[in-house]
Amino acid sequence: MLRHWRLPLVLALLAAAGACGDSGGGATPEEQSIVLITLNLEAGVPELRQVHVNAHLANPAMDNDLYFPTVPAGPIQSGATLALLIPVTRMGLLDLIIFGLDAGGTEVARGNGQTTIMVGDRVDYTISLSACGGPCN
């Protein structure tokens, strides 16, 4: 028989176990769709430190802005890759607009594309970034 002071502890442990189950978005590889994007930097694109991904889902309409890497880092090389992990509850057309940011955080390159989410599967997609010739509008 559990004493009164042990009950909260046991509940806490159960809660921790539950949190463990939901951790990291809780999605196992089979429970999410993956869009793997390869960046192709066209000639004239200045040195990039970060990319800004604006993902738009058509139905239901949703926008998501993500930055890769999360903190600006070394120069991004052509052929760099990033991945969007999308719950299987999201499907349909995915519009992507990608901006390249220089060391000052200014969007100096841009590219876009469109793909269809393969539910529970992976889509490999390449987007070319071209220089905006200054800050992108």
Binding site: G25, A27, P29, I34, V35, L36, L39, V51, A55, L57, M62, N64, L66, F68, P69, T70, I76, Q77, G79, A80, T81, L82, A83, L84, L85, I86, P87, R90, R122
Partner: peptide
């Protein structure tokens, strides 16, 4: 999750 050079993030 596939290996990437810039990382992988949840969207939506």
């Amino acid at each position: 999750v596939p290996a990437t050079t810039l990382g992988a993030q949840r969207a939506f």
